[in-house]
Write a protein that binds this DNA or RNA. Structure first.
Length: 202
DNA sequence: GCGCCGATTGGCT
DNA sequence: GCCAATCGGCGCC
């Protein structure tokens, strides 16, 4: 069972939350809670940074122009599907599929503020400073124990769920996406302004 | 088949 | 700030 901070109420986000444009979902995911349960071990935190990718119309998307491959197959799945891929041959990155048509878009999770299971996260991350536990797309998957085994699963029925936040006022800043070389001027990155848990300031 | 590049990270200069 | 690690996709021969 979940402990302390995140347990209150299990308001897992409905599929309808994801049946909207990726940039809208990306903005609204900031402030929500992500809870991972791996072999009974719970780690959780608050999503503080995301990026939207606009599917077949986005040159930076893995499925631009509807190029279809084994790796990106799940970008064509229904809203609320996990899309997990290997970045630079060594880091897992986690996305949630959005929209109402195949390959319409997805949201990359870029940073999480750790709330529960800190000892587990520290062990998985090799004892780095807490600020670096989940402040990056590759770091947060490692801290939460996310791997390719999550790829293609429906979020609501998977080992990693996203719940509604606490409804508090959040100052969400919009900025340019990070680490890409195509469509670099599209303002599709969303982050809690001033948060020390985001991947970097830009 | 071969070489280059990437939605990254961490270690070193 | 620079660069290696590591591997699937892609372009090109």
């Amino acid at each position: 069972m979940a402990s302390s901070t995140t347990s209150r109420r299990a308001a897992t986000l409905p599929v309808s939350f994801f049946r909207r444009p990726a940039e809208v979902v990306a903005r609204d995911l900031v402030g929500t809670l992500i809870i991972s349960t791996v072999r009974g071990v719970v780690t959780a935190g608050r999503i503080v940074e995301t990026e939207a990718y606009l599917g077949h119309r986005d040159p930076a998307s893995h499925a631009f122009a509807n190029r279809r491959h084994a790796r990106n197959e799940n970008l064509y799945g229904p809203a609320g599907t996990w899309y997990v891929y290997l970045s630079y041959g060594m880091h897992w990155c986690a996305n949630l599929v959005c929209g109402t048509t195949p390959n319409e878009g997805a949201v990359l999770l870029r940073a999480v503020e750790p709330l529960d299971g800190l000892p587990t996260m520290r062990r998985r991350r090799g004892g780095v400073a807490d600020r670096l536990l989940a402040s990056g797309p590759g770091r947060l998957t490692q801290a939460l124990g996310i791997t390719l085994s999550l790829d293609g699963h429906a979020m609501r029925a998977s080992s990693v769920v996203v719940q509604a936040g606490r409804g508090e006022e959040l100052d969400v800043a919009t900025s340019l996406r990070i680490g890409i070389t195509k469509a670099v001027d599209w303002p599709l990155r969303f982050a809690v302004r001033g948060s020390k848990w985001v991947s970097r300031t830009a």
